[in-house]
Design a binder for these strands. Structure first.
Length: 814
DNA sequence: GAGCACTGC
């Protein structure tokens, strides 16, 4: 029910703003109202390589968001850093005959204009010198000469992500060191340790664009474009490095993968863990492994130290400091026992006992905070008032960024602002409303980065995507509803909940900061100061909010037998750990003793959740054809939803008909299979095919990437024949496929009860088929589902019809 | 009758 609320903010006069009667009289302004289906939705955000975004005037975030393409829209709206673009090599260019380096990848050094690279680097150097971190270079170098671990608090805009690797790369300890390592049989082996710096990032876009930026600053070609390239990156499906790579940006997951093969990280002299405050689960694993590595005897590195820099934007350094100190305290004194005398590695034992801490101010303009004087019940309505208040009162230029909770509230407010703007004083500047959320099609997202037309104020209505992932320039006003949707895994129910929750103080500060990137700004918080003070300090780490089975299997695969003694940055509750262990036992990934099984080892190497990995192995027992089909389905399940929502009514009709030949009565799994097959079988124009069927072309491209990766892996592990180049035109066997899935998802099943609803087989919970399912509204004996999610009610997503006796068998088999 | 944000040999 819409409530009339008075949102009078500070001393800002309200009378000049139009009275938003619409907002208060119109129920649809609320979170659950119905301004929906106005636009095509559900498309994954463009991958890094195609993501043009406006550059910014601070190097740090500029690099993280900058467009890879020199001609991308949005680039150059700020001129400060706009320099002649460096020639960007194209991966697809045919290999020219190069006299210089015949072994090099297609891209030739004779095309790389080193002079122009150097010139550009010189220009950039002038800008680098102005970064807040630049004056700390010597201090940072000294810290890391003396100590192995450094914690660095660098506020946004300090330039830490781009500059730290450059400060360190020419240090003596960063050179490759000859070392001898003891092998298990007692013999020693001469190896080279170190030489490279790894910098981890939570997102692929950031990893790629930072690499590009640092390459420019260092005046070196990027990645695999030249064998002389000193800067590269590595993200899933896209690794670009050269034999000369000294600075490598990678995603956290990628470093974990590298550690699975090289637990001692022998390639690296230093690992920089960036954006730790975001606290994704992978950061918790990485820091845990790194702590063991730096505080241990380094025998696998021949005693050569590994420098670790942990960087965060928020000042929550005490817990990190305590975490690493604990590691040094608990370990035996470093005796450098296995290192050899010729090694030039510093042998200062005491160095590894200490940790340095460095604090760098950000470069930020002041932002004035204005709180709501009274609690706000309808933040869409409150935001509407504030938007027009700002627009009427505040001078141009100055765009408005509004943080909302989800697509629904974004679209509701979008409609209200547009309706309202019609009656606005024609002498006022115009308002351009721009929605921004991850499911928004790429083209629509890009409109946010284009500068506003003359005499127009942009009003960006965003989910928390704008908090970290995306930077919009031109913003001077932030309106913060104080809430966000958070996914939380509830261990006891095995249920994922997506709920609107208050944000943390650090998120509130982050949102506010978005107003002060280019000039002084204002932040309107749609909650009281008292509410602010009662917020949690930091975001709940992901490790406390997610299913731990994959993380635990990962640890087991690395030989961490005693999970309880693993150094967790934040220790998950015992119950969550036990649940995950039980789940791994159920799918036979662990032995009864708790050690990893052969099956588990196999699953751990797959880029899949343990359950999906188990399904893949089960399918291989049903034969090659079943495995091929199950890989197609699993590929769909590991990307965002592949079906787009229909835009207009007429289009909907046509699309529904076109899609109907893809639908399978067995359920979503076989529907996905038929979709992948049809898409892969389309040789003429896959994009047009996808459009005709209202299937997300982007999602399908990811599906094909995953499919290729999984097929390759199955070939390597001999689950698939090496020469399966023939097309797989066999008829799928739904029974084999669904029974394979039941091997992983036996507990994700529900049966129909007499009142027509479904109850879970384990736990007897009520569950409804999600409206996105092809089985929505159908009554079947029993269903199996991939996800059990709570939003407004409990839903099963990724649903297929199964028989109760299969479920019984599958449960018995566990 | 519905979709916060990320990510992986």
């Amino acid at each position: 029910m819409p409530e009339k609320v008075h949102t009078h903010f500070g001393n800002l006069a309200e009378e000049s703003a139009p009275k938003p009667t619409l907002a208060t009289d119109e129920p649809s302004a609320t979170e659950n109202a119905g301004h929906k289906k106005k636009r095509s939705k559900k498309r994954k955000r463009e991958e890094a390589a195609n993501e043009p975004q406006a550059p910014r005037d601070d190097a740090d975030s500029n690099a993280k968001n900058a467009s890879p393409s020199p001609n991308a829209p949005g680039e150059g709206s700020k001129s400060e850093e706009k320099v002649d673009s460096v020639p960007q090599p194209q991966e697809s260019a045919p290999a020219p005959k190069s006299k210089l380096k015949p072994k090099s990848k297609p891209f030739s050094d004779n095309k790389t204009n080193f002079t122009s690279l150097r010139e550009k680097a010189n220009t950039l150097y002038e800008l680098r010198k102005k970064l807040p971190i630049f004056g700390h270079a010597d201090e940072i170098r000294k810290n890391l000469r003396d100590q192995d671990v450094m914690l660095l608090v660098g506020e946004t805009g300090s330039g830490k992500s781009t500059q730290i690797p450059q400060f360190l790369v020419n240090e003596f300890w960063c050179r490759p060191q000859p070392a001898k390592i003891c092998k298990e049989d007692g013999t020693t082996k001469s190896v080279t340790v170190g030489g490279c710096i790894a910098i981890t990032q939570p997102r692929r876009v950031a990893a790629i664009s930072l690499a590009r930026r640092v390459a420019e600053e260092m005046g070196t070609p990027l990645g695999s474009s030249s064998p002389a390239s000193k800067v590269g990156y590595s993200v899933r499906f896209d690794t670009s490095t050269s034999p000369s790579t000294r600075v490598k940006f990678l995603t956290e997951g990628m470093l974990l993968q590298e550690m699975l093969h090289d637990p001692w990280l022998t390639k690296y002299s230093a690992v920089v863990v960036d954006e730790v405050h975001e606290r994704g689960i992978n950061v918790d694993l990485v820091t845990g492994f790194l702590r063991n590595l730096v505080s241990g005897k380094r025998e696998g590195r021949g005693g050569v130290p590994l420098k670790v820099v942990v960087m965060s934007a928020t000042a929550d350094m005490e817990s990190l400091l305590g975490f690493f100190q604990e590691g040094f305290k608990g370990q035996p004194q470093l005796q450098n026992g296995t290192s050899d005398e010729e090694s030039e590695a510093p042998t200062k034992d005491e160095a590894s006992k200490d940790i340095s801490v460095c604090h760098i101010k950000g470069r930020q303009f002041p932002v004035k905070t204005i709180y709501s004087p009274a609690p706000v019940h309808d933040f869409v309505d409150a935001a509407l008032k504030i938007i027009f208040q700002i627009h009427y009162k505040e001078p141009m230029p100055g765009d408005i960024l509004v943080f909302l909770t989800g697509q629904e509230t974004v679209e509701a407010l979008e409609n209200l602002v547009n309706e309202y703007a019609v009656g606005m004083d024609p002498n006022l500047p115009r308002i351009l409303v721009l929605p921004l959320f991850a499911a928004l099609p790429q083209v629509a997202q890009q409109r946010v980065f284009a500068p506003a037309p003359p005499r127009t104020r942009k009003v960006i209505l965003s989910t928390n995507i704008a908090e970290t992932s995306v930077t919009v320039s031109g913003v001077r006003y932030v309106v913060d509803c104080g809430k966000a949707k958070v996914k939380q895994f509830r261990t006891r129910l095995g249920l994922d909940s997506l709920l609107v929750k208050p944000i943390s103080k650090s998120a509130a500060i982050q949102r506010k900061g978005r107003a002060g990137r280019e000039a002084a700004g204002q932040c309107f918080r749609l909650y009281t100061e008292k509410d602010y003070l009662s917020l949690d300090e930091t975001n709940t780490p992901e490790i406390l909010r997610c299913d731990l089975s994959q993380a635990l299997l990962n640890m087991k695969a690395r030989g961490v037998d005693d999970i309880v003694r693993f150094p967790f940055l934040t220790r998950p509750p015992r119950e969550a750990l036990e649940k995950a262990l039980l789940q791994l036992l159920n799918i036979n990934a662990l032995e009864e003793t708790g050690g990893i099984s052969k099956v588990g080892m196999h699953i751990a190497k797959l880029p899949l959740t343990p359950t999906l990995g188990r399904v893949l192995l089960a399918a291989s027992e049903h034969g090659t054809e079943c495995l091929i089909d199950v890989i197609d389905i699993i590929s769909c399940l590991s990307v965002e939803t592949i079906f787009l929502n229909t835009t207009s009514e007429e289009k909907k009709e046509a699309a529904e008909t076109a899609r109907r030949d893809l639908y399978r009565r067995e359920g979503d799994h076989l529907t996905m299979l038929s979709t992948v097959r049809a898409y892969a079988g389309e040789n003429a124009d896959r994009k047009a095919w996808a459009e005709r069927h209202l299937v997300s072309h982007r999602a399908m491209q990811s599906v094909m990437d995953v499919r290729k990766q999984l097929r390759n892996q199955c070939r390597q592990s001999k689950l698939l024949p090496r020469d399966d180049r023939q097309d797989h035109h066999h008829d799928p066997s739904p029974v084999d496929i669904l029974q394979s899935f039941l091997c992983g998802f036996a507990t994700n099943t529900a049966r129909l009860v007499p009142d027509g609803s479904y109850r879970t087989v384990v736990g007897n919970q009520t569950v409804a088929i999600h409206p996105s399912s092809v089985l929505f509204g159908k009554k079947l004996e029993a269903i199996m589902y991939n996800e059990f999610v709570f939003t407004n009610r409990t839903y099963a997503r990724g649903v297929s019809a199964v028989q109760m006796d299969w479920v019984g068998e599958a449960l018995a088999g566990q």
